Amino acid sequence: MNVEVLILGGTTEGYALAAALADHPRFTPVSSLAGRTASPRSPAGEVRIGGFGGPDGLEAWLRARPTIAAIIDSTHPFASRMGWNAATACAARALPLLRLERPAWRAVPGDLWDEVEDWEQAAALVSARSRRVLLALGRQELEPFARLDTIRFLIRSVERPEPMPAFAQAEILLARGPFGLEDERALLSSHEIDTIVCKNSGGTATESKLAAARELGVRVVMRRRPRRPDLPNVATVAEAVAWLETISPG
């Protein structure tokens, strides 16, 4: 009998893991998506969309779904609340829990990075020294920058922010990665960007902006990843499948 695995997904890694388990002779994926995008692509296997209602809601869902034998948290590195909810629910249900997370970006020689803990710190840095800024952020993270009315912002987003904060000077660029180095170089140059504000998401889909910034001498204000529960942690789908095989031998 196949083992059901709940994947807390929505990321590239979550989709890849669901595809790998869908073809596996012993595991069946059940993916959970937060439902924040209007038309999310559907991963392989069973899919549920929407939140659980905190740790108690997730625990209740797991109680009603006793066929789930393990959970793999492959949510975005900044979706920390779901990680803590999963840790609490899994402890209550005595279920194995693994974190599948892409490695964070690390500064290399030539990078002009300032790492910050929150967007208020980022806005203060931008206010002090920037003129033209690329905001490569989520739709819900723009508000702290809207009050900086002497700075011109280029806001890159997958979907248009609704509601849109009242920026004095802002242009919206709707685009979805991956972005190539040549395109990122051209974007920064044509808009005369002197600062990029982003979060340390890791991965390759949007990494080219950092290489382009390094080449052009553009500063980067980088938000550090939030703290997460102390869990077994892997960086690849193959490692996640291997972990599953250790908790479900045979």
Rank of each mutant, 00 (worst) to 15 (best):
E115I: 08
R139Q: 10
A122W: 09
G45Y: 11
V133F: 11
P66A: 08
D149K: 10
R131Q: 15
V126H: 04
P96S: 12
L135H: 00
I71Q: 09
A123Q: 09
T37W: 06
A128E: 14
S130I: 02
R102C: 04
V133G: 05
G110V: 00
E117A: 14
I68V: 15
P96T: 04
S80R: 11
L95Q: 06
G53Y: 13
R36Y: 13
D56H: 13
F52T: 04
R129E: 14
S31L: 04
L21Y: 10
A38D: 14
R132C: 00
A92P: 03
I68N: 05
L148M: 08
S42P: 02
S80T: 10
D73V: 09
E46R: 15
R129P: 01
G53R: 13
A128V: 01
F27V: 07
A69D: 12
V126D: 01
V47D: 07
P25K: 04
L134N: 01
L33Q: 06
T37S: 11
R99Y: 08
M82T: 12
P40E: 03
H24V: 04
A94W: 00
I49A: 00
P66V: 07
R99A: 05
S130Y: 03
L148R: 02
A92W: 12
P96N: 05
D111L: 01
A69M: 12
L142R: 09
E117G: 13
E115F: 05
I71R: 04
T88R: 12
A124N: 10
T88W: 08
W105I: 03
A34C: 03
P25F: 09
Q121V: 01
T150Q: 15
A104N: 01
S130E: 07
A123C: 05
L100E: 11
G35P: 08
G138K: 04
P109R: 01
A124D: 14
V108F: 01
A86G: 07
L135S: 00
A146G: 06
R147A: 15
T88Y: 08
